[in-house]
Simulated assay, not measured.
Amino acid sequence: MYDERTREIARAALTAGESLNSVSRRLGVSRATLRDWRDRSGGAVRTNDCPRCSEGKLPAAPFAHLLGLYLGDGCLSALKKGVYSLRIACDDKYPRLIDEAEAAVTAVHPSRPVHRVQAVGYTSVLSYWKHWPCLFPQHGPGPKHLRRIELDDWQQEIVRVHPMEFLRGLFDSDRCRVVNWTTRLDEFIGPKS
């Protein structure tokens, strides 16, 4: 949103002791943004860096887990100014899974906060970013179960390398805590002759 020159001016003014209000009025930057620039170590915060649109790095294992969660109980919603909200619905019976969903979102997009929104019986893990559709091209109009869902080649490669994380996301979103590793073969093969 803001160029690096604006960030440098703001950080220099804040370091020199100028108040958030004064810098905000002078540069037209919100106090929350200024506070974020001031408090983050390592200088500039680049919230718009998209690992798909730029040369950024996408953490593959957390993304595989998040992709499974998104395909199961996630949705993207378009908001104002081209921003999207990623919402993952998590059953309140499994608080550890809510924590893990939040950790996956944070790992994939660490420069923005992740919110929890309580509803009846579930908690939504929520994050805002313009580039969520870049990471989830499966987004489209209408319910996911009525659309054809295919993974892009780059997503397939991540899932190939991290299949357990992807499956865990799918299982977690389906509230499935067990996998039935045994089957009765005669059900599938038929009775012996």
Rank of each mutant, 00 (worst) to 15 (best):
M1H: 12
M1I: 02
Y2I: 13
Y2S: 08
Y2R: 13
D3E: 07
E4F: 06
R5M: 06
E8K: 09
E8T: 08
E8P: 00
I9N: 06
I9C: 05
R11H: 02
A12L: 08
A12F: 09
A13P: 01
A13Y: 02
L14Y: 05
T15E: 14
A16C: 05
E18H: 08
S24V: 05
R25Y: 07
R26Q: 14
R26C: 02
G28Y: 03
S30E: 03
A32E: 10
L34C: 11
R35S: 15
R35A: 13
W37K: 07
R40L: 01
R40W: 02
A44C: 12
A44L: 08
A44M: 07
T47D: 06
C50F: 12
C50T: 10
C50V: 09
S54M: 05
E55A: 15
G56D: 11
L58S: 11
L58I: 00
P59L: 14
P59Y: 07
A60R: 14
A60H: 12
A61H: 03
A61K: 14
P62T: 14
P62E: 06
P62G: 12
F63M: 00
F63I: 00
H65C: 05
L67C: 07
L67P: 02
L69E: 00
G72L: 03
G72S: 15
G74W: 07
C75G: 06
L76R: 07
A78I: 01
A78L: 12
A78M: 11
K81R: 15
G82N: 04
I88L: 13
A89R: 15
A89I: 01
D91L: 02
D91V: 05
D92P: 09
D92W: 01
K93T: 15
Y94M: 01
R96N: 08
L97R: 15
D99G: 08
D99F: 01
A101Y: 03
A101P: 00
A101E: 00
A101R: 09
A103K: 12
T106E: 10
T106R: 15
P110N: 06
R112P: 00
P113R: 13
V114M: 01
R116E: 09
V117Q: 10
A119Y: 13
G121I: 05
S124K: 11
V125D: 08
S127D: 01
S127W: 00
S127M: 02
S127A: 15
Y128C: 01
Y128V: 00
H131L: 06
W132C: 10
L135A: 04
F136E: 00
F136L: 02
P137W: 07
Q138G: 04
G140P: 05
P141H: 12
P143G: 11
P143N: 12
K144P: 06
R147H: 12
E150F: 04
D152N: 04
Q155N: 02
V161K: 11
P163S: 10
P163F: 07
E165Q: 11
F166N: 02
F166D: 00
L167F: 10
L167T: 08
R168I: 01
G169L: 04
S173E: 09
D174E: 11
C176K: 14
R177A: 04
R177T: 13
R177E: 14
V178F: 11
V178M: 14
W181T: 13
W181F: 07
T182D: 12
T183F: 14
I189S: 08
P191W: 04
S193P: 14
